[in-house]
Design a protein around this nucleic acid. Sequence first.
RNA 1: GCCCGGGUGGUGGAACUGGUAGACACGCAGGACUUAAAAUCCUGUGGCCUUACAGCUGUACGGGUUCGACUCCCGUCCCGGGUACCA
Length: 985
Amino acid sequence: MEYNFRDLEAKWQLRWREQQTYKTVTGGEKPKYYVLDMFPYPSGAGLHVGHPLGYIASDIVARYKRLKGFNVLHPMGYDAFGLPAEQYAIQTGQHPKITTEQNIARYREQLDKIGFSFDWDREVRTSDPEYYKWTQWIFVQLFHSWYDNKTQKAAPILKLIAEFEKSGNQNVDSACDATLPFSAEDWKSKNEQEQQQILLNYRLAYLSEAWVNWCAGLGTVLANDEVKDGVSERGGYPVERRRMPQWSLRITAYAERLLSDLETLDWTDSIKEAQRNWIGKSEGTSIRFKLKNQDEFIEVFTTRPDTIFGVSFVTLAPEHELVNLITTDAQKSKVEEYVSIAKNRSERERQTEVKRISGEFTGAYVVHPFTGKDIPVWIGDYVLAGYGTGAVMAVPAHDSRDFAFATHFDLPKPQVIEPPADATTAGFENESWDEKEGKLIHSDFLNGLDVKPAIRKAIDEIEKLNFGKGRINYRLRDAAFGRQRYWGEPIPIYYKDGMPYTLAEDELPLILPAIDKFQPTETGEPPLARAKDWKYKGEYEYEYTTMPGWAGSSWYFLRYMDAKNDKALVSPEAVAYWKNVDFYIGGAEHATGHLLYVRFWTKFLFDLGIIPLNEPAQKLINQGMIQGVSDKVYIQKVQSNSLPISKSESILLDDDQNVFYWSADVVDLGIHRNPEILKYQLLLQNTAEAFLENFYIKNVPIEDVKENKLDIITYSEKSQEKKIVFVCKGGYWYKNKFTPIDSDDNSINHDFLTFSEVEKMSKSKWNVVSPDDIILQYGADTLRLYEMFLGPLEQSKPWSTQGISGVHNFLRRFWRLFHDKENKLQLSEEGGSAAELKSLHKTIKKIEEDIDRFSFNTCISTFMICVNELTDLNCKKRSVLEPLVVLLAPFAPHFCEELWELLGHKESVSKASFPKWNEAYLVEDNFEYPVSVNGKVRFKMNLSLKLSKEEIEQTVMSSDELSKYLQGSPKKVIVVPGRIVNVVI
RNA sequence: GCCCGGGUGGUGGAACUGGUAGACACGCAGGACUUAAAAUCCUGUGGCCUUACAGCUGUACGGGUUCGACUCCCGUCCCGGGUACCA
């Protein structure tokens, strides 16, 4: 019988399904092991070859752990709410639910073809009402909770109300918005509405007026991690800051725990570091500066209280609430103008114009707390309203930003730290000394101290005089939770007298209502405002915003444990058994989004006593991205708002600020990747003519044009019509006219900049490679092996099929080990020879070690070496070959099932147990030791391993052979057992 | 700018705690089988010098530690990712 992967894979996929081979039962004698993939968003492009990389790795781990005797939970589901399906709905009118279902069906079909061992009975979809009922339920719990800093835990809001009734908020230490102190009497005298307003300051899910990232292109607000470089992560639309009522989750309450618990996790340093940076803990001091001739104070936050004597001015953020109050009449018009300009500058502008210094004097002064001198108060947009107190004490001599501001406006820069003698600086006229090193000068009681003790002493003094105190600040902001979109979980809130109230548990889920159009309403309200008769008890307005994409994914790992439970999000028994994820794998792009949110929700549910887990996943691996190769055509627009050629090269804006990605399919170049002939298909929104009129040519590297013959075909997607053929060899064709390029002139500007670039695979970039073609040609097992063989799991790499025949050949050679020339299974029952057993046991040992450290690429090499060895030995013995089938089964399951069955086994190979290796077979008794003299290998000798280290030294030194090669007498002989003998002379 | 990775043949990559650098695979070259092709198998394959043996050199670059460095330390350059007026 031949290795016919097509029939064989179909046969086993069907059998696994029929026999429910991978159905997992909660509980039992076996130890548990939970292997989890980050579930996919089912996009319209289907699965590409990058998706399965992580799934294959986790499937190998899951199958391996089963063979090792674990009860393995290995589920899969879909992150089914999200923007693309909704964008599609807006364009076509097709309900996102239908789009999503179609995409899921396609994903499932593709996943099944790869032969994963998922327990599909536990599938979850975040868009199922049975699922999002519990997402909503968690939101309700968040709404009814507050964070008690004293116990460092979330607690029921009822407890807080009881405390308010007893003694107001005097004794409450909570993560909350600024709330004026009130007594028990004050509390009781307030009406329901006022009380609810105060409680919102404490709730973990709360509604407030907040600065948000407003994305007009998507018509919604975005969380900080959904914004990259001032544009939306999805779609690349510009984002601006806007103040509006906004649901938020008080993740900042958990900042310290999210930070310190990182220590307990077995995650890569880069992810932990990214989370630490995102949380951004900084220890500093808040200092109050009294305003001259007024009773108000300006509170600043600084990490450098030691430089207090170097303050030459104070700067407020333009949005600071005191700005209007303190500005003098003389400065009013200027300040107001500046504030309005600053407010209207988009986030993107603020980021790209970081170097531009702007500000305005308010006319007001504060009093220096130690010297009593007047300090001018400025406003400047380099101070951020959302961080610290929105105000800084400026110390130009020791902070580069203050320095730049002071230089620009010609303000004094008093020096208070003398840098160490060996420090290299450009001098205080040219730059500030920001380092926390040196001795304090001109600083009264701090004089002569080093910076670090000076910081402590300054805090002590400031606290003693009671105009400030030590304080810890976090960069982390509360997470914006409402989205002005349709395709998400409805927030289970209704409004009474303008105050939000939650639905009761038995009223959940709040089903996403049907609407006819998916755009925002004419009055700018979210799409849900279109829903008819959608009122709580027919009377109260529901919340119109929906939850963000990350809501459903923040707890899904729990749902798999008990996916069909309609009484609870997960039963206590199930979560007590499965506990947290033992092996979690997914893309590193979720480092600061999903992975922070899922930790936050886990900690919250832990605080409520719903789950016994403080962290979702103990071990995390980030699979690298498989990138696509896009052959690109860049066009730079002649417009002032054209993007600088830099990071944003691939993004182009047209007149309507729509974003294009220019990319193309490469027509098969053969095995040599030298792009002799490239065919580009440009994705054009406008016609090719309009396109050519609107864009001009820029900086084609002459070499590229000289060496490559470029065939460019542009066509309009709308009309599906080819417009212009564009050929380049020493020149280019444009509107049927050939323009030669002067090869000596490198400065010519051209219309198109063309080359291939490695980047993320995505439908919008036209570079998606589907696994289906590979499966058709080589089979799923080859795909699985090949994806693992590509290189280390964590590494990103461009997709290329070069070398795929190597792993396919390996499978065929493996197959041939079991079969004779006539393709009959032909094995003898005799025992293996020493060489055969050594090969086998070496392989078992190496595979086990390599899987345990998730090094799958070296596993494949190990298998190949083993097959080469056994082929050379012409080994046809069952006792040697059978264990190899089990060993390979996690990697190539269909293939191994078939061999296993041919070997006469009735049960699936997944029920077998992993073979054990035996040290005895690995001993080398005739090993040629390389002998090196002074570290350089000179010759080889036979030595017995059975000798002790000392005996080896003696043997070597007394050897005639050795002295023959040595010109001096050995001082030292170093033996590294099993590796090398080194002689030092 | 700051933080985290990384730089090894023509290519993807091995070398785990310092111990024969380049495993394994692709590609390439030559050969066997075949009327031929495919498939399969064998041999060679970092560079230099050599008929060959041998020798020299070699893990981005410059230095250091060590009997011995791809691995550790210091400095430089380059690439990738994250992040950014965070006070």
